[in-house]
Design a protein around this nucleic acid. Structure first.
Length: 451
RNA sequence: GGAGAGGUGGCAGAGUGGUCGAUUGCACCGGUCUUGAAAACCGGCAGGGGCGCAAGCUCCUCGUGGGUUCAAAUCCCACCCUCUCCGCCA
């Protein structure tokens, strides 16, 4: 969520920069709502103030044993007026926040303007793609050849975009996650956390998945009052059926699309001490994505799954340090690829390709011989105060005043795609796959996966 | 699932209809004293919002939402959460 103060004082500049990411900010509507809000709020507060003063007067008069009837008469008509104004104010504020919640973050000045992924800017390239003296296969052929990846089984059990791993590949998958966790905790100073994989809507709102991107999530419906017994009990207590159904509260849970959601929300509503910053968390979790709207895209193999594992890096950081922090965090993710000796390149996403909540994002793309292309394996973003404002996540600054933190996160790395990259880059002519040296301790010392 | 207790400022803990957004203690910050520190003493210290150049004025918030009332931390209803005991269970 953007700072409403910024919109009040400098909305044209904001609208201009948001246009770079192809978002039209409705300045006219905002200004009209703001003007309405201002007048209603002023009027409401005047009335409230008057009522409070009179009520206080009644209390004082009663204490002295004076007659309160004149004061009571004076305040009589106020109640309804106050209630009406409060209702109006609530309505206009709801409209404003509804509008604000779907406005994306403003790109940082260092982000290149652009329409699509084609306009992303490469910042570095590390490693050289290997020259094969045979025609390299993609991970599907490698995995199925080894009889250790079973796409058909995934389809049978759940459906498309689910995969079953077996034996050496399942173990390699586990080894990758273990390796990443150990590097980030032991060398990069992150604290490992284990978190819920189902979260409430407040958490999804905090990190920006809701209200705008519900269609990307798997939802577990849960409502209170949907139980007949509860309803009749309420009726017995005097509530009418209509008021009961109107009060139905959605308590649905959502499967996390990334550990970013539960981990970042650890600080939701908190005021953390200044000296605890930056908080650095690493979390291995499954991720669940509906992939609505990506029909036909990456249907082959494990690149785009409804369920995949990821090791996620999250930092809760001082606003003055967040851009340095983003560089460091991106470096932490790159370290994994360097250790695995996988060629990659890092790009700065242009304004048109960035995620909703991000002020700046680096994508790390790993070389996939099976596709003869670099493919995203990590996305590292600085959200500045965008998520913090939604979450009311703050720290106490030097003056003792609460101030919004900045939040960062990035994959360090996506486990499934790392597995794909290893299978394809480390494949041998005989169909076996060499295990990267750094992973062997988690593979019982084995050097190869073969059938 | 059954029975009970409870949710108040960073923490502890008062407050059961009226100058209470809240007594007090601890913690924290500033000052006096001291060679320095501690102690003692004095002062400050919840969060969010609006109006205003500012000084300042004002509104909202005592788990959440609704209700009663001129007035609610306090009374009523529902929900959420925490704790204790019993039962069940990976």
């Amino acid at each position: 969520m953007l700072d409403i103060q910024l919109l009040r004082t400098d909305i044209d500049a904001v609208a201009k920069r948001l246009a770079d990411r192809d978002f039209h900010l409705d300045v006219t509507t905002f200004n009209a709502l703001e003007a309405e809000r201002k007048s209603i709020q002023t009027r409401t507060q005047e009335l409230q103030s008057k009522r409070n003063a009179l009520s206080k007067g009644i209390g004082q008069a009663k204490a002295k044993g004076e007659d309160t009837a004149p004061l009571m008469a004076e305040v009589a008509g106020l109640g309804d007026q106050v209630a009406a104004c409060e209702k109006q104010l609530e309505a206009v504020q709801a409209k404003l926040s509804e509008m604000l919640l779907v406005v994306p973050n403003v790109p940082h000045a260092s982000v290149p303007a652009g329409k699509s992924a084609d306009d992303n800017v490469e910042v570095r390239r590390v490693g050289t793609p290997r020259k094969f003296d045979f025609t390299p296969k993609d991970h599907v052929d490698i995995g199925e050849g080894l009889r250790l990846l079973d796409f058909a089984a995934g389809v049978k059990i759940a459906g498309a975009r689910f995969t079953v791993m077996k034996g050496g590949i399942a173990r390699l998958h586990r080894a990758i996650a273990q390796f990443m966790l150990d590097v980030h905790t032991q060398e990069h100073g992150y604290t490992e956390v284990y978190v819920p994989y189902l979260v409430n809507s407040k958490s999804m709102e905090g990190t920006g998945q809701l209200p705008k991107f519900e269609q990307d999530l798997f939802k577990i419906p849960r409502e209170v009052f949907d139980d007949d017994a509860v309803v009749s009990e309420l009726e017995a207590s005097g509530a009418s059926v209509s008021s009961v159904s109107a009060k139905t509260i959605d308590r649905s849970l959502y499967l996390i699309p990334t550990a970013e959601v539960p981990v970042t929300n650890l600080v939701r509503g908190d005021i953390v001490p200044l000296d605890s910053l930056p908080l650095k968390f690493v979390c291995h979790s499954p991720c669940f994505r509906s992939e609505a709207g990506s029909y036909g895209k990456d249907t082959r193999g494990m690149i785009r799954q409804h369920q995949f594992d990821k090791v996620e890096l999250v930092q809760i950081i001082h606003p003055e340090q967040s851009f340095e922090g983003l560089e460091a965090l991106t470096g932490h993710a790159e370290t994994i690829l360097k250790r695995l000796e996988l060629p990659f390149r890092t790009v700065t996403l242009c304004t048109g390709d960035m995620g909703f909540s991000s002020a700046k994002t680096y994508d790390i793309e790993v070389w996939l011989p099976g596709q003869n292309a670099y493919r995203e394996i990590s996305s590292c973003s600085n959200f500045e105060a965008f998520q913090a404002r939604r979450m009311q996540a703050r720290f106490r600054n030097r003056n003792g005043k609460p101030e919004l933190v900045h939040t960062l996160n990035g994959s360090g790395l996506a486990v499934g795609r790392t597995l794909v990259a290893i299978l394809e880059n480390y494949q041998n002519a005989d169909g076996s796959v060499t295990i990267p040296t750094v992973l062997r301790p988690w593979m019982g010392g084995a050097e190869k996966i073969s059938s």
